[in-house]
């Protein structure tokens, strides 16, 4: 942070009237009610305790142990077979259909989750380009300068920011 002297001197050189106003009235005129910040803190703490701090990864080890050593292995294996059959059926491409043809009816969260889960199908460079166009800032980032982990973190952050319209554009 620069000193008050630095910023005031800079302002006096650039804009004497504005500098005078700042000296006389450094406040911005905005205010809040007296207990607001206590309420804000409480409200934020309630919200973060309501949500898990980090996204939970799907626990495959729990499923596997249930399948292998659970009390009802036959039911478990049947369930698995049915799940695989359903997966195969759902993943078969439907003729003359576009998976996201009706994506305007799909919630942004679902789109985000889809892109997130299928990140490998999208070029990171493309997602970053779209995100930069959509977001407030341009960055000078080059993917060549980033590690895979950093690219993943960046993509996660960008996907969180994108709105439904942009997600649909990506798809």
């Amino acid at each position: 942070m620069d000193s008050e002297k630095d910023t005031q001197k800079e302002l006096e050189e650039l804009a004497p009237n504005l500098a005078r106003l700042r000296k006389q009235q450094p406040e911005d005129g905005f205010s809040v009610h007296p207990s607001y910040f206590r309420e804000l803190e409480q409200s934020v703490l309630n919200e973060v305790h309501r949500q898990p701090a980090t996204k939970r990864r799907f626990d495959w080890s729990g499923i596997l142990s249930w399948l292998l050593v659970g009390p009802r292995p036959v039911i478990a294996l049947t369930t698995l077979a049915l799940a695989l059959a359903a997966l195969w059926y759902l993943s078969a491409p439907a003729p003359e259909s576009n998976l996201f043809a009706g994506s305007s009816e799909v919630a942004a969260e679902e789109l985000r989750a889809y892109v997130h889960e299928n990140l490998d199908d999208f070029s990171p460079g493309f997602i970053l380009e779209v995100a930069e166009q959509d977001m407030a800032f341009e960055t000078d980032l080059s993917l060549d300068d980033l590690s895979e982990e950093e690219i993943d973190i960046l993509l996660d952050e960008y996907l969180e920011e994108l709105d439904q319209e942009t997600l649909e554009d990506i798809l």
């Binding site: 450094p26 406040e27 911005d28 205010s31 809040v32 009610h33």
Partner: peptide, 13 residues
């Protein structure tokens, strides 16, 4: 009515 809080100026904070 309670008095609203104004942001203190950087010079006086």
């Amino acid at each position: 009515m309670s008095v609203p809080i104004r942001k203190p100026s950087p010079q006086t904070v």
